[in-house]
C-alpha cells in the first residue's frame, strides 16, 4: 500500500499534472483572496459608506427600497470582523475544492484515458488496494493544496486585517474551526472525485460534469428549492434542505455566518458532506473491483 501511494505520487510528479494543479491553486486562491479583501473592506466600514459605495454616484435616498433593504441586510450579516476573517482565511475553498475533485477524477480516469489500467491492474491485481492508495493520494495532495492556499490566505489576510486596524482574529475558535473544516472540505471533495471518476470513466465527461455540478449546482439548487417552497411544500425546512446539494453543504460547513437565510448550522453541512464522502469512496471501489479491464 505504501509502495502504491509512492508510485501514485511519482506518477503525478512525472507529468505536467502537478504544476498545472499548483498554478491553478495559487492563482485561484489569490484572485478570490483579493475579492474577499475588497468585500471585507466595504463591509467592515459603516453602513453609510457601504450604501454610498453601491449607489453608483446616485444619492442613497433615491435607491429603490428593496435594493436598500438588501444592502442593509448584507451589511448587517457581514459587518463582523470574525466572519470576514474566516472568509478571507478560507479564500482557497471556492475553487480549491473543485480542483481537489478534479484531481480525484484525473487519478481514476487517467488510467482509462491513457490506457494504463491494464498495466496498473496487472502490477497490482488486488484492485481494492489500488483504489485505496488512489484515495489516500488524492486526500494527501488535496491537503497539500489546502496548506498552500491557507498559507497564502493567512499571510495576506493578517496583513490586510492589521492594515484595517484589527488583530489576526486567530484567537477566535470559529475562525480556526473554519480553516480546519476547510481542510475537511478539500479531502471530501477529493474523495468525490475518485467516486465520480469511477462512475464516469471518460476524463472529459467526468471533468465537465464535476465543474458544472459544482459551479451551477448552488444556483440551480437555490431556484429549484425556491420553486418547491413556493408551489408545493410551503415550509421553511424545504429551503433549509438545499444543504443536501454537495456544493451548498460544503459552503455551509465552512462558513461561520449563514450562507443563505434558512441555512442550517455548520455541523449539518459537515454531516451531509461526510455522508457523501462515505458513499463515494466505497461506490468507486465497488465499481472498479467488478469491472472488466479490456
Amino acid at each position: 500500500m505504501m509502495r502504491l501511494i509512492r508510485a501514485e505520487l511519482f506518477k503525478l510528479r512525472t507529468t505536467n499534472t502537478w504544476w498545472l494543479f499548483a498554478v491553478a491553486t495559487v492563482v485561484s486562491t489569490t484572485v478570490v483572496l483579493v475579492v474577499n479583501c475588497v468585500n471585507a473592506h466595504a463591509l467592515l466600514g459603516t453602513l453609510d459608506q457601504y450604501l454610498t459605495a453601491h449607489s453608483h454616484g446616485n444619492a442613497v435616498a433615491d435607491m429603490p427600497p428593496e435594493f436598500l433593504a438588501r444592502l442593509t441586510a448584507e451589511w448587517t450579516s457581514g459587518h463582523d470582523v470574525v466572519t470576514q476573517a474566516a472568509t478571507i482565511f478560507t479564500s482557497g475553498q471556492l475553487i480549491g475544492v473543485l480542483l481537489a475533485c478534479l484531481l480525484g477524477i484525473v487519478l481514476i480516469t487517467g488510467e482509462y484515458h491513457h490506457q494504463t489500467a491494464t498495466t496498473t491492474f496487472v502490477l497490482t491485481p488486488r484492485r481494492t488496494v489500488v483504489v485505496a492508495s488512489k484515495l489516500v493520494t488524492a486526500i494527501f495532495v488535496a491537503a497539500l493544496s489546502w496548506v498552500v492556499s491557507t498559507v497564502i490566505s493567512l499571510v495576506a489576510g493578517v496583513a490586510f486585517l492589521s492594515n484595517q486596524g484589527y488583530s489576526s482574529q486567530l484567537d477566535h475558535w470559529s475562525v480556526v474551526r473554519a480553516v480546519l473544516l476547510n481542510l475537511a472540505a478539500y479531502a471530501l471533495w477529493a474523495v468525490f472525485g475518485i467516486g465520480l471518476g469511477a462512475v464516469i470513466r471518460s476524463q472529459l465527461a467526468a471533468t465537465v460534469t464535476a465543474t458544472v455540478l459544482y459551479l451551477a449546482g448552488t444556483a440551480a439548487a437555490a431556484s429549484f428549492f425556491e420553486l418547491i417552497n413556493t408551489y408545493v411544500i410551503k415550509h421553511d425546512w424545504v429551503l433549509t434542505a438545499q444543504v443536501i446539494v454537495p456544493s451548498v453543504a460544503s459552503a455551509v460547513m465552512v462558513s461561520p455566518a449563514k450562507t443563505f437565510t434558512e441555512s442550517p448550522s455548520q455541523w449539518v453541512g459537515a454531516a451531509v458532506l461526510i455522508g457523501y464522502g462515505i458513499a463515494a469512496g466505497p461506490i468507486g471501489m465497488l465499481l472498479l473491483r467488478r469491472r472488466d479491464v479490456a
Binding site: 509502495r3 502504491l4 509512492r6 508510485a7 511519482f10 506518477k11 512525472t14 507529468t15 505536467n16 487517467g110 491513457h114 490506457q115 494504463t116 491494464t118 498495466t119 496498473t120 496487472v122 502490477l123 497490482t124
Partner: peptide, 19 residues
C-alpha cells in the same frame, strides 16, 4: 496497454518499479 502520453519511458518503468 500503454503509458501516460506525457510521461517518459524511463519514468513509466520507474513508477512500475516503485509500485
Amino acid at each position: 496497454s500503454a503509458a501516460h502520453a506525457g510521461r517518459t519511458g524511463r519514468n513509466h518503468l520507474r513508477a512500475n518499479c516503485i509500485a
